[in-house]
Design a protein around this nucleic acid. Structure first.
Lengths: 209, 209
DNA sequence: GCCGAAATTATACACTTGATTAATTACTGC
DNA sequence: GCAGTAATTAATCAAGTGTATAATTTCGGC
């Protein structure tokens, strides 16, 4: 009747492991499948341990969602790189419609969490922050692109452009991640870039880099 | 110790009541909150009764989702009316960004269900069918609009337009339903119509009806 | 009016869930 | 090496879940 062996981990590592295990559970089994037991099993740990690192299961889930959103935005921003605003915007668009942002697992996790946003205030806050960050990023880029090209637009016009671009990218992201259609990566890039160019009144050939 | 009184209902009515109660529960409490007891309580009925009308709770939820999707598509199609293809497309767009299609409750229900699509095959099928129906509707309209205007496009070009339009409408629908921004209904209509017109290469003023 | 079939209720069961607590183990500082 | 502290396990609990079944009530046909 010997206990299972274990080894201690620094707090940050264990927390990260638990969050990763939570995201794995959510991706494969949905939010309802991310039980304390399932998560702890995937993390190679005992259920009781979760409570030492997260007050509630609710907190754990919220932390996982926060981490997920942060990674998503980080990946999108990384696609921007640096250089002229136009090519940064192109990079953002490409990143939004390509893995790892646009892929089945990411969509599954997003879909699972999004359902909890409405009924859980904590999740709602995390969601709102992340969403706004992405929209601000787009709006800033649009503004830079326009000023770079010497096109004078009012603040509301830029805002409107950001709304439309954001919607288009969201929609494309969902469509692509769902994988119903079978477009090659090249197609996806061109469709996204051409559409955004058209919406902004830019020559698509120039926009493709 | 007298039993509560009750009255019998025809099968179709009871089924519809249970589905409506399920959707209410899902809208307010999320999918996890739509327990057998909660649903039966809202339907003014006893938990056990559900089993007479639906084999599983899973079946009940799937039926609710199916009904929800059907109503959504019906509402979108109703916005089309009849007449020239261009005005039917305009009607579809308006319907997509206006209540009851675009509103908080609808989004909540959609979000709650969408999370279950990945892990539940039955839900996946319902989802796929509804999604494809909407995309086909758009594709057909685009084709008609183009032929109506004497613009010759290949099948793949029309398909691409449908993909982009669908994405844009989905994205706008989400944004509007979330209600983060505060645009008036007029703004919403104009933004959606102008964007679609631009994407299709149509003069926006002509498109607004 | 009453009888029988069908709908509905009431109750109970087995299971899973998140949470709690005490016992044990691994590791750090000396 | 050793002691003490903190992390981890193990075991248990109460609450809530979906499901099953028997007891009741409603209501249409006669």
């Amino acid at each position: 009747m010997t206990r299972r062996t274990f080894h201690r981990e620094p707090e940050a590592v264990r927390q990260q492991d638990l969050i990763a295990a939570t995201l794995d559970s959510v991706a494969e089994l949905g939010l309802a499948g991310a039980t304390v037991r399932e998560v702890s099993y995937r993390a190679g740990v005992t259920p009781g341990l979760i409570r030492r690192y997260f007050d509630n299961k609710e907190r754990l889930v919220a932390a996982a969602y926060k981490s997920f959103i942060a990674d998503l935005i980080k990946a999108a921003e990384a696609g921007c790189g640096d250089g002229p605003a136009l090519s940064r915007l192109a990079g953002l668009i490409r990143a939004s419609v390509t893995a790892p942002v646009a892929d089945g697992r990411t969509l599954s996790i997003w879909a699972a969490f999004i359902g909890a946003v409405h009924s859980d205030p904590v999740m709602a806050e995390v969601h709102r922050d992340g969403y706004q960050a992405f929209r601000d990023l787009i709006e800033r880029l649009v503004a830079e692109v326009m000023s770079e090209r010497g096109v004078a637009l009012s603040a509301v016009e830029i805002h409107r452009h950001a709304i439309v671009l954001n919607a288009l990218l969201d929609g494309l992201w969902i469509e692509i991640s769902m994988g119903g259609d079978d477009f090659s990566r090249l197609d996806v890039d061109r469709i996204a870039l051409d559409s955004v160019a058209t919406l902004l009144g830019i020559d698509p050939t120039e926009f493709r880099d």
